[in-house]
Simulated assay, not measured.
Amino acid sequence: MESFSEFVSKINNPEHQSRTNEVLDWVMEQFPNLTPVIKWNQPVFTDHGTYIIGFSVSKQHLAASPEREGIIQFSDAIVQAGYEHSKMLIRFPWDKPVDFSLLEKIIEFNILDKAECSTFWRK
């Protein structure tokens, strides 16, 4: 995970570092065709130059940002999994496990939904 090592090294809490590494490594293993990049000082995954998902950290959670469409599509599943979300991000609390099957569905949705997208963001 060379692409994100500097980002992760700046996380003060070792447990949060470990969880962040776990999630970023998982995305790279499950979706090897995605390109890992740093944008806005945060880890982001793109596909053919279009945004698929990004991550950020706070004291309370690891956040995933699948664009608004990803939130709308999976809003009920996110809530049923016990997570909170806003219009643009999902909050994975540090003290709860990450639901990787939900995360996988969200990423797969974005890859398929943006397959013909020629811009970074949806229009």
Score class of each variant (00 low, 15 high):
Phe4Ile: 06
Phe4Tyr: 15
Phe4Arg: 06
Phe4Gly: 08
Ser5Arg: 14
Ser5Asp: 11
Glu6Trp: 06
Val8His: 02
Lys10Phe: 07
Ile11Glu: 01
Asn12Tyr: 05
Asn13Gln: 12
Pro14Met: 08
Glu15Ser: 13
Glu15Tyr: 07
Glu15Asp: 12
His16Ser: 06
His16Ala: 08
Arg19Ser: 08
Arg19Thr: 13
Arg19Phe: 10
Thr20Met: 05
Asn21Thr: 09
Asn21Ser: 05
Asn21Cys: 00
Glu22Cys: 05
Val23Ile: 13
Asp25Ser: 09
Val27Leu: 03
Glu29Asn: 12
Gln30Ser: 14
Pro32Ile: 13
Pro32Cys: 13
Leu34Ala: 07
Thr35Ser: 03
Pro36Glu: 07
Ile38His: 06
Trp40Gly: 09
Asn41Glu: 14
Asn41Pro: 02
Gln42His: 11
Val44Ser: 06
Val44Thr: 13
Val44Lys: 01
Phe45Gln: 02
Thr46His: 02
Thr46Tyr: 06
Asp47Arg: 09
Asp47Met: 11
Asp47Pro: 00
Gly49Lys: 10
Gly49Arg: 01
Gly49Cys: 12
Thr50Tyr: 10
Tyr51Cys: 09
Ile52Ser: 04
Ile53Ser: 01
Val57Phe: 05
Val57Arg: 06
Ser58Gln: 11
Lys59Asp: 14
Gln60Cys: 02
Gln60Met: 11
His61Leu: 01
His61Ala: 15
His61Met: 08
Leu62Trp: 02
Ala63Val: 09
Ala63Met: 10
Ala64Glu: 09
Ser65Ala: 13
Glu67Phe: 02
Glu69Asp: 15
Gly70Cys: 12
Gly70Ser: 11
Ile71Thr: 09
Ile72Ala: 10
Ile72His: 10
Phe74Asn: 03
Phe74Asp: 01
Asp76Glu: 14
Asp76Pro: 00
Ile78Ser: 02
Ile78Thr: 00
Gln80Asn: 13
Gln80Thr: 05
Gln80Asp: 12
Ala81Val: 05
Gly82Thr: 00
Gly82Asp: 05
His85Leu: 05
His85Trp: 02
His85Lys: 13
Ser86Tyr: 09
Lys87Thr: 15
Lys87Pro: 00
Met88Pro: 08
Leu89Ile: 12
Arg91Ile: 02
Pro93Thr: 10
Trp94Leu: 09
Asp95Gly: 07
Pro97Tyr: 12
Val98Gln: 01
Asp99Ser: 12
Asp99Lys: 05
Phe100Gln: 08
Leu102Cys: 08
Glu104Ser: 13
Glu104Gln: 15
Glu104Cys: 11
Ile106Cys: 07
Phe109Leu: 08
Ile111Val: 14
Ile111Arg: 15
Asp113Tyr: 14
Asp113Pro: 07
Ala115Gln: 13
Glu116Ala: 14
Glu116Ser: 14
Cys117Arg: 14
Ser118Val: 13
Thr119Gly: 06
Thr119Asn: 14
Thr119Leu: 12
Thr119Ile: 12
Phe120Ser: 06
Phe120Pro: 01
Trp121Glu: 14
Trp121Ile: 08
Arg122Glu: 13
Lys123Phe: 00
